[in-house]
Design a protein around this nucleic acid. Structure first.
Lengths: 337, 337
DNA sequence: GTACGCCCTGAGAGCGCTCTCACGGATAAG
DNA sequence: CTTATCCGTGAGAGCGCTCTCAGGGCGTAC
């Protein structure tokens, strides 16, 4: 008597084969300890023989929990992916942590307005247990909306606007301060900066920190705007050289922009670090392969992802969490300064 | 009479508010055209007023379709993410295409053996409608297993082993041939190569193509092994210089390895391209920012992702698809050769 | 005017699972 | 020996949805 069905076996079939009720089979599958040893074994055997895999949809329907978490990456056409290290790093950290908790990662790249709306429906619809946001642009209302709708949310980077969504950030100020301090100690007098986009908190904070630290030293600061990409770094550097031909140091708010700046400096015949010292921010993979290897502020990207996930998991477990977690940054001195 | 419930509204509530049966409400929500105009409007209004969002789990339970697709990235600790462009590019392409089809992307990073097994259970368990594989290492049995279990699968890169899983690949041979041909035309005589890992089809194919093309030209080939990372490129280049100090060209099977090679060459006092010409493969973002900007073979990474997704969608729609799709590669000549 | 057919709507079953509740049997206490 | 207690198991409801099937209403044709 073969009861091997070609389609997916159900709990009912497992129960029948093990000679128990569906309820008991369910208990065993879900690891309840109140089931007698021999019965538990019988059920496990039946599960193995039938190749039973629980139907997640059915389980979700009754438990109201999906076992998955969304990571939303608000993506402007060429930004998120040009932060080449940031994105994979965060994804990886999140993924590791979720895996340990046996949850699935649902990735949502939100570029268009349509995608934005879809993500909203999807997440408010209870299709995921919680939502993670990476690098928010501007004062995106979504995190706050979700939080208000009762969906657990954690953001990467302090959300702009007056929302009270919990977040994970790095010590931007400390990192920038270390970088500028380092340049001052090296005897640099005219320090310029290439700032990041001012609709992102990382761009904002790094510029604010730069200004604050330099103001403290009594030196004037020349600023050019970029958007974290290489191209913008190149352009901004050109601008800077025009504004202050005598500058002897540049702090770029991202490694990629520093990379672009390096190129402009080379084209302009400036030697690095002899004529101009350059410091970046991120310590992405390319930093040590630039010419010269780049001095930069390291941020623990993968740990950001891990922390993001960990905080969300705590939220899901019903714990209260602190509104913000600040991760340390560290100055990595190489040859460009 | 307020029937606004604090919890998520169900279809039942929408139906009641619109004064129709649940069946009809369902029809409207799912876009059936057989419903009378005024009723349709009434239902839509109720949906809007209540903020109704269908419960995916319930729908999945009866339709047996989840509306989501898994993208599996078999990840060795430092590989996938050091291919910094490849991973985001593929994800992005897949994501775009799935979004257009209103499907969710479930990302699975499969590093450990445990994760491998989990992914197997998850995907065979019918929790996703189909599975996409990116850059398979060795002869991973998973794609084949899934296909056999009736799960629609599409791979990126021809799977090793004798499986018959449909796949999307790029014209490796054509790209390598163009690169080598270009070097020969520039008058290079001693062309070496830094090969990729030989447990990946991209590594294998590029080396095979290199050998074949050079053999046709009657020139000898010096080969060093790498694993697609910068570090390995650096090391391999050192090896190459030792093996053949008089080499005048190098073809690296990835841009990252070319980057490493560039550094070694600089340290060894070789000028590029004057003494040694260098050509890479990928045309990742850094290529044009290397010093000198790198000549390389461009592969349409994002399009790989799109095609991957598109093929899977066709499979899901019940269409038959060709076993393989080959995407073109293109030589981008810059200053390193 | 009647009969037939078609179109639109509603009733109801059931997807696979979890969980509450009740019940039977064994054990302990009186 | 009886009664109370407790532990382990089974019965059954119900999560929210889709989809089949039947039926009512109306138009058309005879």
């Amino acid at each position: 008597m073969h009861d091997v069905t070609p389609s997916r076996p159900t709990l009912e079939q497992v129960a029948r084969r093990a000679g128990v009720s569906r309820a008991t089979a369910s208990r065993v599958v879900n690891g309840s300890t109140t089931v007698a040893q021999p019965i538990r074994e019988a059920v496990h055997r039946a599960v193995a023989e039938l190749g039973y895999v629980p139907n997640l949809a059915a389980r979700t329907l009754v438990t109201q929990r999906t076992g998955s978490v969304a990571l939303i990456l608000p993506e402007t056409p060429n930004r998120v992916f040009s932060d080449d290290q940031f994105f994979p790093g965060v994804v990886r950290g999140v993924s590791q942590e979720l895996e340990a908790a046996d949850r699935q990662l649902v990735l949502m790249l939100v570029g268009s307005a349509a995608a934005h709306e879809r993500a909203e429906r999807y997440t408010t619809g209870g299709h995921v247990d919680g939502v993670l946001f990476a690098s928010i642009h501007g004062a995106d209302p979504l995190p706050d909306m979700l939080a208000r709708a009762g969906v657990p949310v954690v953001c990467s980077g302090r959300p702009l606007g007056r929302s009270r969504v919990p977040y994970v950030e790095v010590d931007q100020h400390g990192g920038v301060a270390a970088a500028v301090q380092h340049l001052l100690e090296r005897g640099r007098r005219r320090i310029a900066t290439i700032a990041g986009p001012q609709d992102m908190v990382a761009g904002l904070d790094r510029l604010a920190a730069f200004r604050k630290v330099l103001a403290g030293s009594g030196r004037r600061s020349v600023v050019a705007m970029g958007d974290f990409t290489r191209k913008s770094g190149e352009t901004a550097m050109r601008q800077l050289l025009e504004d202050d031909p005598k500058l002897d140091a540049v702090f770029a708010a991202s490694d990629l922009m520093a990379h672009g700046a390096l190129r402009t400096l080379r084209q302009a015949g400036r030697r690095v670090p002899d004529d101009v010292a350059v410091v970046g921010f991120d310590d992405s993979g390319i930093a040590q392969y630039m010419d010269p290897p780049l001095t930069t502020v390291r941020q623990p990207i993968e740990r950001i992802g891990q922390t993001l996930a960990r905080q969300l998991l705590r939220l899901l477990a019903g714990e209260r969490i602190e509104e913000s977690v600040v991760l340390p940054t560290e100055l990595i001195v190489r040859d460009s300064s």
